[in-house]
Design a protein around this nucleic acid. Sequence first.
DNA 1: TTGAATTTTCAAAATATTCTGAAAGTTTTT
DNA 2: AAAAACTTTCAGAATATTTTGAAAATTCAA
Lengths: 168, 168
Amino acid sequence: MELQVAKDKFIHTWGTLATQWGINRTMSQIHALLLLSPKSLNADEIMEDLRISRGNVNMNLRDLMSWGLIYKQLLPGERKEYFMAEKDIWKVARQIAKERRRREIEPIIETIEDIKKSVVPDTVEKTEFLKIVGDIGVVAGFADNTIESVLKSEESWLITNFLKLFSR
Amino acid sequence: MELQVAKDKFIHTWGTLATQWGINRTMSQIHALLLLSPKSLNADEIMEDLRISRGNVNMNLRDLMSWGLIYKQLLPGERKEYFMAEKDIWKVARQIAKERRRREIEPIIETIEDIKKSVVPDTVEKTEFLKIVGDIGVVAGFADNTIESVLKSEESWLITNFLKLFSR
DNA sequence: TTGAATTTTCAAAATATTCTGAAAGTTTTT
DNA sequence: AAAAACTTTCAGAATATTTTGAAAATTCAA
């Protein structure tokens, strides 16, 4: 069936792209699978669909939850846990931006603060060193602010809904 | 010497951080070393400083050049090639943003275009599939535009110089 | 030219990451 | 309280990435 082929292609490509930017392939394949699935899926279904082990599914589902990209769903009368992806792609994008900010930018800012505290600018060399390190700190701060302000404007009701018009 | 300790710490930490976001550790260590070095360095000096092999140095220097983060310098009377980092951190940040845009966002947009072309929305399922894929495309496009406009405003003379005031 | 100095390449080794699967842990049902 | 249904953990295996180092290629000086 043509649709299944396209879905598989999407899931596969998505996984490959993810590795390019430091994200686990299986994690993004599971995410893609859940994004495309009209109903929520349990661990066995994911195992079967992507042909991966139970342990692998379990680990990556937990990672995806920690990124805020999927939710656990407890269906009445069912023992198994079901998972569904956040389908509002704007929410997904915001979530990813927030996490990357937290994981990539914040540690830079911290490291730089530490270094600034530990070196006293009492020679030319030290002053120059602090200048470069400080510059990097300023740029990291700028990136941090930029992401924050984009997130804020994105989050505001008006903009969110205006942009959503294009995604229907 | 206190300064050397701080430099080493910075180089080491920078390398570790980089691995977290999908960039080769050695590559970012070499970059950090060159950023902190007042004079340009040749391959032997980098080998000795970071205790890594010639091949590794060579590969990563070429990668750094392809990212536009370092330059080759030919010193008169010297056979060896010397390398220096772009010291204007704003330029560095723009360069990184551009490259990441090219390597991370553009492939997403391409993949999505392909899929959209290959699936005809003649059933509910296909329409839903195309809706999700299309949404992702819209978000990727939004990210692309956002980065572009930040880069543009950053690049404009006024802003660049205004922000530079803070980094002196 | 020749050959010394330097850079580049790439197969194999080292290292790091991801994945498996069975055992241990937990929750629910009987 | 025992068993069944399910989830989590984690040591070892599989896979992927990075690094080495010596050989090949290139560049330059004489």
